[in-house]
Amino acid sequence: MTQDSPMMSNQDRLIYMANQIARNFGTMDPARAADAVADHIASFWDPRMRAQIFELQGKGDVRLGPVAAAAITILRQSGAPPHQTQATEFNSVSGVGHSDAG
């Protein structure tokens, strides 16, 4: 996306979103950050969005930053990693039953 054109294509936007998530995990070491990004995408992205970004990476799209790219690779190869934060974690507070973090 150029500065004069904020209208991203949908594919641009997926790349942008993945990189934006990665930037916000930027204080973590890269391996942990990649897990966190992968967990976030697995928890909040609809399957078609994930499929699209897998496809983009598969086609060699180079716009994904290193952490975002590593995260997509994790998801493609190993599936969702263990949960990283309470926002993606559930059923861990009370042990049995439902944590119902709301």
Binding site: S43, F44, D46, T88, F90, N91, G97, H98, S99, D100, A101, G102
Partner: peptide, 16 residues
């Protein structure tokens, strides 16, 4: 929200 049932429980949670 598209990832949660009522009470903020994720749709991927099998028990919920």
């Amino acid at each position: 929200f598209p990832h949660e049932f009522s009470g903020y429980r994720h749709v991927s949670d099998t028990a919920t």
